[in-house]
Nucleic acid binder design. Sequence first.
DNA 1: TATGTATCTGCAATCGTTTGCAGACGAAAG
DNA 2: CTTTCGTCTGCAAACGATTGCAGATACATA
Lengths: 344, 344
Amino acid sequence: MKKQQQVTIKDIALEVGMSVSSVSRALSDHPHISEETKLKVKNAAEKLGYRYNALAAALRSSRSKTIGLIVPRISMSFQAAVITAIQNKLHTYGYNLMIFQSNESPELEKTLIKLLMATQVEGLIVSTTLYTKDYSVFDKTAVGGVPVVFYDRVPIDKACHKIVGDEFSGGYQVTRHLLEQGCTRIAHISGPLSCSIYLQRLNGYKDALNEFQIPYDESLVFFHELNKENTLQSCETLFKNKQAPDAVFACNDTAALAVLEFARENGISVPKDLKVSGYANDSRTEISRPEITSVEQFPHLMGEGVAKLIMDLIHNQDNQRSFLSLTTPVELIKRTSTLSEQPS
Amino acid sequence: MKKQQQVTIKDIALEVGMSVSSVSRALSDHPHISEETKLKVKNAAEKLGYRYNALAAALRSSRSKTIGLIVPRISMSFQAAVITAIQNKLHTYGYNLMIFQSNESPELEKTLIKLLMATQVEGLIVSTTLYTKDYSVFDKTAVGGVPVVFYDRVPIDKACHKIVGDEFSGGYQVTRHLLEQGCTRIAHISGPLSCSIYLQRLNGYKDALNEFQIPYDESLVFFHELNKENTLQSCETLFKNKQAPDAVFACNDTAALAVLEFARENGISVPKDLKVSGYANDSRTEISRPEITSVEQFPHLMGEGVAKLIMDLIHNQDNQRSFLSLTTPVELIKRTSTLSEQPS
DNA sequence: TATGTATCTGCAATCGTTTGCAGACGAAAG
DNA sequence: CTTTCGTCTGCAAACGATTGCAGATACATA
């Protein structure tokens, strides 16, 4: 009487006087079972309080109906939105999602891969840490052949299935917009270049500068984790420069907010003396005063795409030799923090 | 050659010329196995590319090492923080967390419980939807005897294991603070009372009013999902009143922000003419101008508590007849949105 | 030599499903 | 009456680990 014995299909079989195989088939609506018996079996199951054991099924059929996901942290609103989209979409396929957080640690990330593989996930979805450099842990052999899909933060210089926002375009659009507002000394506060998204945005930034024939100035560009402290630090050095910048393109909204704070504390007027743009368009951008120009990434779109792709890969495990890459659109949202004339 | 055959302990046994049982024990550091053989086995495992099959182990031992969690949505920053704390803590116990979102739908919530039970979770952690009224789905029998711990949003009038913030105190402190600022017509924008937290906060609100001998005025109190649209609506009716309120105690920060927006659009000066408080202290409260008074709930503390409690319950499955309830502290964070005199 | 003890290892059943194959049955066709 | 077919059902072997129990080995002791 320690643990109440689980009710199994065996019990049902006994109850209705049939074999376990028929019961199994009846419960899963196998076409070879008559409607009549199906009903009988299902009623008995209900009556006995039967609970399906997905573990046993997964073991036997080696289909766990589970996808693993590793993400730096779920508290970033963009990530939360993507994950939710993925999860909802996967549910429509009858698949569950196992969510793990790497907390930006490549070591933990590695451990989590092992963990997920041990739980026999049928697919793996990953947005890497800022510092992931060794992608071999995601190799087909390393993950036992299960399909891997990356999104947002993806391996650099390595063929893989991936869905990314159009980071280059985002970086380009922000920069171009600032240039069009008349800015010429545009600072760029970026994350580490070991992370794909920052690399791409930097390229977009450079491209726009180039187009406007403004030389790339290293003293205006910073690379570090984009939290408040680091960003304030960068502002500090930035404004110690002989020549102050007239715009800052920060690579996320947290950093943009920090720039605003710095400006406020140092009597720099935004957008008049300094224009500021963020990235990711999180909800804080429109609460801030001034409202912050940012780039919408359509996380829902990305999430749906990721879910579809991984399901595709699972269902056609055959000769998958080529890699699929999808780029989702981005949209520059212009707000007061970068606009010369105030809109009415 | 369809799917590359998995390497099992059987293969290892063959490799090192031992029985599977010894291999199994060696891998799990069983004390009856000599260090020497353990090493040999582990090396062989490494060499063959062995991957532990947690499914098989879970089935056999009926210990899945997995806890299920059902939460309305992970995109609420408070929830994300609690979940992260829970997950990290559980990892230290060697347990995994399976996260599902009920999306505020009691039906989906019910489905998810079934799903989690099917995956043989050893425990269940729940923060209910706003509208969950039928708690029988969480009954010991309904969940096959696995322990259930509620947090934040918990069943009303039903004994259960739970960890909640001190909502009553939070509601009381906010209201008292507003009263002390000289407010007398304090509106209260609350969530539906089917949800424990709002019920408690309302009680705190009433208690403070009572203490200041201000009668409870129904026309100042609203119950609805706390999104922007609903809140604006409530403000509309609120300010159509013959006598306008001089303060609004909104039950979350999204609602408080909406109130600020309404005030701004209608030329109502905050905090001069109207004081506004939120709840949950999400990051937007200090970005908003004016900054918004709110209540910190210490999600990390709550998460750790939840994880510890569920592990306790799992480890002492024996005669658990009594229910444990823990209340975590809250702290009123006073900001400009409710302060009469501006701090320097 | 027999016995005891400590340490290590193996046998085989078991967890709850799924599934290939074969069998049973009745009806229709020859 | 046999044959054939279609429809439904059952047998029994998996899936990959864990674990109670018994057995083996080595060594010391009686």
